[in-house]
Design a protein around this nucleic acid. Structure first.
Lengths: 162, 162
DNA sequence: GGCCGTCTCGCCGTTTTCGGACGTCGCCGC
DNA sequence: GCGGCGACGTCCGAAAACGGCGAGACGGCC
């Protein structure tokens, strides 16, 4: 029940809205995020975690960071958190299918539910839901729009080779 | 979403639990309150509003206060807040029926629902749900027990005449 | 014969909807 | 008095709808 504060961070994908509690990052949202996230409190004072998140994201976009260290507190159901935990294990530049994730959390048939949980990921980019594509390899959806997903994958692809 | 703090206040009706946010009083609960209210946070620091509430309640029980000035923030559905607003208009020593209240909020047939809303009143005493009785004049129910309701009415009756 | 697109259907957690039950009642008969 | 019934917002549980899917079946097209 701690207060939430937010901060807007410019990025190549448009202004990102970072939301944090006193202790951890709680959300990263695109300008036209879908589904629209709940409104956060005013940004009176910036807790340190918010500044750290902004710095790491800047580095990520600049190609100088592949993993994030900022404390996270993704809020959701038990199942969703399990999916998001699995997300965190996908390395920079890699890709997985929704079926892969389902297997990984021990519920190989819950493919569709994994897709839904993926769509509710509150920590875009940091929890790399953009690295999950259909088994066929097709891009299927993204909270920030498919263009953003494609941009992120290309960005990582470019750097992964180097 | 501000933090809630609480404080116990001794009274002729037993220890009352006062709950407040930074800005306003949110709840007043009897020892055996029904339905049981949600648990509040720890009482680390007392916001001014909590002390003011305690003082005014003391004065009320001592017979030196008939109206409260402490800021209130009763949380509930729109309908409930409408009922509670109507409650606040009942003067010290007066009594109304549930049907009266229903008429007052413009939903004369929602008598039973008014009763239910009354039962969910989070601010006992300050929002005087004890001044509402059946059309027949009978005492019908009270979160703090019928004895408490009777005590409050008698208390006000005694002073109203003076 | 391969190689796609398209369709259909089963999968499953979450969300939304729906229906019934439950009150701090009041009115009408008896 | 007492019993019965109607009133209506809430709560709660059940049921249905809804997705950022995947596998298999078809039908075209080289």
């Amino acid at each position: 029940m701690t207060r939430l504060v937010q901060r807007i961070l410019p990025s190549p994908l448009g202004p990102l809205r970072l939301v944090a509690s006193d202790l951890a990052l709680v959300g990263i949202y695109f300008p036209e995020h879908r589904p629209a996230p709940a409104h956060a409190g005013e940004d009176a004072e910036h807790p340190p975690v918010l500044d750290l998140a902004a710095r790491e994201l800047d580095e990520y976009f600049a190609g100088r960071r592949r993993r994030f260290t900022v404390a996270l507190d993704p809020r959701g159901t038990e199942f969703q958190r399990a999916v998001w935990r699995a997300l965190a294990a996908i390395e920079f530049g890699e890709q997985r299918s929704y079926a892969d994730l389902a297997r990984q959390i021990g519920q190989p048939t819950a493919v569709r539910a994994v897709g839904a949980a993926n769509g509710r990921n509150p920590l875009s980019i940091v929890l790399p839901c953009h690295r999950v594509v259909a088994s066929s390899g097709a891009l299927t959806g993204y909270a920030g729009g498919l263009a953003a997903k494609q941009w992120l994958l290309a960005h990582e692809q470019r750097l992964a080779g180097a």
